[in-house]
């Protein structure tokens, strides 16, 4: 298992106005590993991963204290461009959100707005991303069909391909299977395990079995605090904190 730390949250406190959403979070995200964030609704887990690529900055009255480090460098400083950061730290959302364009254009668009003009290179990246997202075999004959005609699971893999085309280093998944059936879910989970070899992955999930299946490390959040963080097998077999145990065994509340 990889041990190099790719991202790190240091003494992170986060506020929406007066509401203290994240309290003193310290968490390390390791390279070429899947880190799962679990916890009940409203515990701050989605807020936390949004900090990792500064998505919180689009919310008014939000305030961050502490440091978010990528390869040891603070990503929140005014000298760091948020767009550049989001190229390095990509995100896949709960609901598949393809553009109302063709499959090809969905992936090519991100490259084009990043200044890639070479058509051959764009085509190569589109095909490569679709292959990496395990979608190529299903859609290779209809790259110019509308992305909206794909199934929910295919749309989600297209969004993953779109993310991969920008060549990120870290991929954040926010409940990526919440709207998918079990077969599509399995495809996404298999894909995450495949992507782990080349990327650093953080996944927020309500589905504890999913966290147990795909992740190497798991953090349990409760009411804005990181209660426990450890190797996934420890969290699910023998957690150290009673609150973690109560949550994962369904005794919570």
């Amino acid at each position: 298992m990889a041990t190099k730390i790719r991202m790190k949250a240091e003494n992170v406190n986060f506020y929406y106005g007066a509401h203290h959403v994240l309290k003193g979070i310290n968490l390390e995200i390791r390279n070429n590993a899947v880190t799962a964030i679990i916890g009940p609704s409203g515990c701050g887990k989605s807020t936390f991963i949004r900090l990792l690529n500064r998505m919180h900055e689009i919310v008014p009255n939000a305030r961050l204290e502490g440091r978010i480090l990528l390869d040891g460098k603070d990503v929140v400083g005014s000298d760091v461009d948020a767009v550049d950061l989001r190229k390095r730290v990509g995100m896949v959302f709960q609901k598949p959100n393809p553009f109302p364009k063709s499959i090809f254009e969905n992936i090519a668009y991100g490259l084009q707005i990043n200044g890639v003009r070479n058509k051959a290179l764009i085509e190569e990246r589109v095909v490569d991303s679709l292959k990496k997202a395990a979608l190529w075999g299903e859609i290779k004959g209809r790259l110019h069909d509308s992305a909206l005609r794909l199934s929910g699971g295919q749309q989600q893999r297209l969004c993953i391909a779109r993310c991969l085309a920008i060549e990120p280093e870290v991929i954040l998944f926010d409940e990526p299977c919440a709207s998918l059936d079990p077969i599509s879910t399995k495809k996404i989970e298999d894909l995450i395990l495949e992507l782990e070899k080349d990327y650093t992955i953080v996944i927020v999930t309500h589905n504890m079995q999913q966290a147990a299946r795909v992740s190497d490390y798991t953090g349990f959040f409760l009411m804005g605090e990181l209660i426990e963080f450890d190797q996934t097998e420890i969290i699910f077999k023998a957690p150290r904190d009673k609150r973690t145990e109560d949550y994962i065994t369904g005794r919570f509340g």
Binding site: M208, F236, K237, A238, P239, I248, T249
Partner: peptide, 9 residues
């Protein structure tokens, strides 16, 4: 039930 932690043990 896919038990976890103390229940699994």
């Amino acid at each position: 039930h896919q038990p976890m932690a103390v229940d699994l043990r």
